[in-house]
């Protein structure tokens, strides 16, 4: 096992959906997708985003795209047109999640 940042094993893109955001996370291999589908739960992401996301987080699976889609409710302090926060569209939520430390079996590392 090795502790790596999530970006070593996945990619991410985020954007706004009203007052919420979505983060699409794409694993770097099908084996890593299976690993992340098991480990990167909505609860884990909620723990990461507890200071940013004030609502629920739900997760959807897209195995053919090696991807997980996280929906973060109430994560933009009022939403794109209303808030004063710098990241009003949540563009940094994906890159931010990729800094998460995660313990990965050696045989799965790219």
């Amino acid at each position: 096992m090795a502790i790596v940042e999530l970006r070593e094993i996945a990619m991410a893109r985020s954007g706004d959906k009203g007052d919420g955001t979505n983060i699409g996370v794409t694993a770097r291999s099908h084996a890593l997708y299976e690993f992340l589908a098991d480990k990167l739960t909505a609860a884990v992401v909620k723990e990461q985003f507890k200071e940013i996301c004030k609502g629920d987080i739900t997760r959807h699976e897209l195995p053919k795209l090696r991807s997980l889609n996280f929906l973060l409710e109430n994560s933009l302090a009022g939403g794109g047109t209303e808030t004063l926060i710098m990241d009003a569209q949540g563009k940094a939520h994906g890159p931010g999640l990729l800094h998460m430390k995660i313990d990965v079996p050696d045989n799965l590392l790219p």
């Binding site: 990619m11 893109r13 954007g15 706004d16 959906k17 979505n22 699409g24 794409t26 959807h60 699976e61 897209l62 195995p63 053919k64 795209l65 090696r66 991807s67 889609n69 929906l71």
Partner: peptide, 30 residues
Amino acid sequence: DTVTAQLLYELGEPTRYLSPDCTADFTSIE
């Protein structure tokens, strides 16, 4: 990977992407 990233952009529930013309299932994409 670059196309998948855009498929996921501002995506909600992937099996029921709503448009005025249909509902699209992003989990069916090959």
